[in-house]
Design a binder for these strands. Structure first.
Length: 724
DNA sequence: GACCTGCTGCGGACTG
């Protein structure tokens, strides 16, 4: 055994031998050297089941066993974003520590209060906890924090890649600084992550003040062979003979996946249900045992456990048709193939999904991508003619093959999460001065984009009598207000993310249905609902209502025109695909036909002066050639100039009104730096959980920092007009 | 044209 092995404590060595391991894995040996020879922070990056957990825990547990700490408190803190992961890891650690007296304490909402009471009475060993439960400890037991964590020598952050730029990630960073402030000393940070798009950004996330001091251990590999296929399908009309695209895909999955373990990502819950149903029917028809099961968050925990167990134990062949539920989380073992129906939303997620396949030596990773495109008619929308879904799938596969994936987003203000942490720190301490609060959250903590003026504006908003989340005592101390007390008291406070709320769509007093909105929607924009195109008339964000009218203009694309958060680089690659000649070898015959069709239709759009094409007298298409942030910004700017606008991947469809200026004139004005009020028509600005407590002005600043790029508008319009 | 994640303390009924 190696030098790294010799460093481990005896009981840990014994466990390792019992596993039949001849050697520590490479990342485990390297992590052991880093963790046992110094006190540096560390990021361990490897795929699921790559041995990351042991890489962090074997050396840290060895230190705890060989050099016990005199102070009271848990020795090691482990934070993970999923309850299932905590339960799973606790079980593995129990095994490792069986011959020691180190207690392992899983702590989340499903853990009984007796376990928690016992652990807090005499805190020792390893605490495995969710960010929300840790938040609750700060709020409910603020004064006990030093006693609970006085001995803590390291905190392990699992699934680091999944929280890097999210609200929960900011919350976790804030909690870590608050922990260090309460203990008056730094605590070593160890991040466990999937392969990252940008290691430097991850280091800055883990230790913002000294990212260059963070060590990294990255798994070698990714050497598995990749087998790729992209299957194209054309959605049929009702009167068409032959199977629908859905039936054809189900048949193809049935024939190719039967008899092995697979994951098929269906995109949406409804699609997951439809495909599962077809596949079940196919099994019944052939009198075969059932092996295709749906898996998404609306299904019961019992059913999901059943599917996960079947995948993991490998006794019976199992294919899960799933949403992103099976992208993260516990190890479900190796699968033969990963299916993806429709274009994914990010290359990072595609890579993570593909990482579930081809993990055994000598086995290839297999990706089967399915693209469904509309049957074209003389009145088809331009976006259907350009086959944008399939083109995006190709662009993402190309970027995946090049090893690229999206880096974390730029630093935003995160005002909703700031509100949460303001209330939480006040609750933890009973009361605090504004200046000290600013220091904790914005100078040492993660809200560094927030200057003192903005911070005071936020405090003022929260202190408004009708808001009453905080108040100031006569001695200047900030306290919770009446509403703040109520909010913090309820257990629903601990989570910092919003549970999606649906907007009601109303046309002429009649309700059309509900739609979850997580994008910038403003009056004068078009949206698709139940196969029809609607003009947004008014957004009543605080009532969660959108008033719409049937839109006269144009035929809607098969899928809506509401692009999610697509990165600039993906859109640029889509244009490379449209403008290029290369015919990727992984496309099947139909996909090749669709690609040729897309290129030919793109050529016929006659873009002049390069990026603007006139569709009819009052309709034009602009190729923005850039991602959703800048495309949405231009959409709002044109809307402010009187146009009706619909967004697509890298394109805007623009309709004039009688009183609207010519499109070129409007773009020229923007290129010349004309100031427009992007919020002139009250777009929806309530995206996050604590947004409803902020003023319109603060909401606009938050949106500008995260969802829009006002300063890039002149540059974008310059490019569109072909100016230098 | 999406998807996912999380949650305390207390009172009262019941069991051994």
């Amino acid at each position: 055994m190696s030098a790294a092995f010799d460093k481990l404590a005896r009981p840990i060595q014994k466990w390792t031998r019992q596993q039949g391991w001849k050697e520590l894995r490479d990342i485990q040996a390297r992590a052991t050297h880093v963790l046992m020879d110094g006190n540096r922070d560390l990021i361990v990056a490897a795929s699921t089941a790559g041995g990351k957990t042991e890489a962090a825990f074997l050396p840290l547990l060895s230190q705890v066993l060989d050099e016990p700490c005199e102070d009271s408190g848990f020795d090691v803190l482990y934070v993970a974003p999923l309850k299932a992961l905590i339960t799973d890891q606790a079980r593995r650690l129990e095994e490792i520590c069986r011959d020691t007296d180190l207690p392992i304490t899983p702590w989340h909402g499903d853990v009984s209060s007796s376990v928690k009471a016992k652990a807090t009475k005499r805190p020792r060993g390893v605490l495995l906890i969710t960010p929300e439960s840790l938040e609750a400890l700060f709020i409910r037991r603020g004064l006990e924090i030093p006693r609970l964590f006085g001995a803590t020598r390291a905190v392990i952050l699992d699934e680091l890649h999944s929280v890097l730029d999210s609200e929960r990630g900011i919350q976790m960073r804030s909690l870590l600084t608050r922990l260090e402030i309460a203990l008056k000393r730094p605590i070593r940070r160890v991040g466990l992550s999937a392969t990252l798009g940008d290691m430097e950004l991850a280091k800055a996330y883990l230790r913002p003040d000294s990212p260059s001091e963070v060590e990294q251990v990255i798994a070698e590999g990714g050497s598995a062979e990749l087998q790729l296929q992209l299957h194209g399908y054309v959605a049929g009309d009702k009167d068409d003979e032959g199977p629908s695209a859905t039936d054809a895909i189900a048949q193809h999955l049935f024939e190719n996946l039967r008899g092995s373990d697979n994951l098929v990502f269906g995109g949406a819950r409804q699609a997951v249900e439809i495909y599962s149903d077809r596949l079940r029917a196919l099994c019944e028809k052939e009198h075969l045992p059932q092996e295709f099961y749906p898996h998404h968050a609306s299904l019961s925990r019992e059913h999901r456990d059943f599917v996960e167990r079947r995948l993991k134990d490998g006794t019976a062949p199992t294919t899960a048709i799933c949403t992103s539920t099976l992208e993260l989380g516990i190890d479900i073992g190796d699968v033969t193939c990963v299916g993806q129906i429709g274009a994914p939303f990010s290359v990072a997620s595609l890579r993570q999904r593909l990482g579930r396949s081809g993990r055994r030596p000598g086995k290839p990773a297999i990706l089967r991508q399915y693209a469904v495109e509309a049957k074209l008619t003389p009145t088809s929308n331009f976006s259907d003619r350009l086959r944008l879904g399939m083109v995006r799938a190709i662009a993402m596969i190309e970027l995946l093959l090049e090893g690229w994936c999206e880096p974390p987003q730029r630093e935003a203000l995160h005002l909703s999460t700031l509100v949460h942490q303001i209330l939480s720190v006040i609750a933890e301490r009973g009361g605090i001065r504004a200046q000290q609060l600013y220091g904790i959250l914005c100078q040492i903590g993660p809200f560094r984009q927030v200057d003192t003026q903005l911070f005071l504006d936020v405090l003022r908003a929260l202190g408004q009598p009708e808001v009453a989340l905080i108040e100031q005592a006569s001695d200047g101390l900030l306290l919770l207000g009446a509403n703040g007390e109520k909010l913090v008291e309820h257990y629903s406070f601990y989570a910092v993310f919003q549970t999606p709320e649906e907007y009601r769509l109303i046309s002429g007093g009649k309700e059309l249905g509900t739609l979850p909105i997580d994008n910038m929607i403003a009056p004068g924009m078009l949206l698709i609902f139940s196969g029809r195109r609607w003009l947004v008339q008014e957004v009543l964000a605080r009532d969660r209502v959108i008033l719409v009218a049937p839109a006269k203009a144009g035929v809607p694309p098969i899928f809506g025109g509401d692009p999610g958060n697509i990165h600039d680089r993906v859109i640029q690659r889509m244009f490379d695909v449209l403008e290029g000649q290369k015919r990727p070898i992984y496309l099947d015959a139909t996909a090749l036909e669709l690609l040729d069709e897309a290129r030919s239709n793109y050529g016929q759009l006659l873009f002049d002066p390069g990026t603007i094409a006139q569709l009819s007298d009052n309709a034009a298409v602009i190729a923005t050639k850039t991602g959703s942030v800048r495309t949405t910004t231009l959409a709002l700017a044109l809307r402010a100039s009187g146009f009706t606008v619909q967004t697509h991947d890298g394109f805007l469809e623009v309709f004039g009104k009688d009183e609207s200026p010519e499109l070129i004139d409007a773009l020229s004005a923007l290129a010349d730096g004309k100031e427009v009020d992007l919020f002139a028509h009250s777009p929806n600005l309530l995206f996050e959980k604590f947004h409803p407590h902020l003023t319109e002005e603060l909401l606009q600043k938050d949106a500008l920092s995260a969802h829009l790029d006002a300063s890039g508008l002149a540059e974008l319009t310059h490019a569109i007009l072909g100016r230098d």
